[in-house]
Amino acid sequence: MPLPPTWQQFLDEAGGLSRFTGRFFSQGFKPRYEITELLRQCYIIGYKSLPLVGLTGFIMGLVLTMQLRPSLISYGAESQLPAMVGIAVVREIGPVITALIFAGKIGSSIGAELGSMKVTEQIDAMEVSGTNPFKYLVVTRVMAATLMLPVLVILSDAISLYGSYLGINIKGVISMDLYFKQVFDALSFDDFVPAFIKTYFFGFAVGMVGCFKGFNSSKGTEGVGRSANSAVVVSSVLIFILDLLAVQITDILGLN
């Protein structure tokens, strides 16, 4: 009995993405290394994403604090606000929200850029000029996304906690020293490490899906738009799946 078309399409996509990932591992660590292009991509993917990630992180911390405060007051636990926000931001909200913002900005931009290069034969032009486009375009972008997202998450967490500190000070008074002492007292090594490690996987997923969608773009300009769009959708779903897996693994390892 043949599979329904949607299932077949899903399996085709999953198979294609798996082969593409396999190609990354088979080619990505062999010379020639595209160091200059990798650094350029780190600048574009990391540094240029900083304003957006910083802004969303700041608002996230501020809003989270303002939303949590009434509930904690009703339980008489207002003093626990810095600790609660700290744990929520560092363990879950910071990595996941930053990764989703990153997927929206970087996933779509990689998908659209490589998609338009594909349909205008620029990738073929690179290949016929004796340059391996997979190494030059894909490996550099995936590595840059993998390396830059954890850095962005750390910065976003810091800005988010600062937003939360300002949020507390809107209706109350707390010194910065006391606020951060309460935050770090509530956090342990087991909170930081799994949250930090999973961001590498999130970054890898965003870079890989963006490149896969762009590299396999077809059907002209319509295909470019579709590549950009599906890069965001698929990488966002993958972020949640990876997050779920990370929680299960940390639970098994007793790090929760």
Binding site: T120, E121, Q122, D124, A125, E127, V128, S129, N132
Partner: peptide, 24 residues
């Protein structure tokens, strides 16, 4: 091999119908 092919390609020019200039 892939490496030898890349080397050979440097001796072959290819003018694309769409020009394929790197637009960035």
């Amino acid at each position: 091999s892939i490496h030898e092919m890349d080397e050979l390609r440097t001796k072959i020019g290819f003018l694309f119908q769409s020009n394929a200039l790197y637009d960035s």
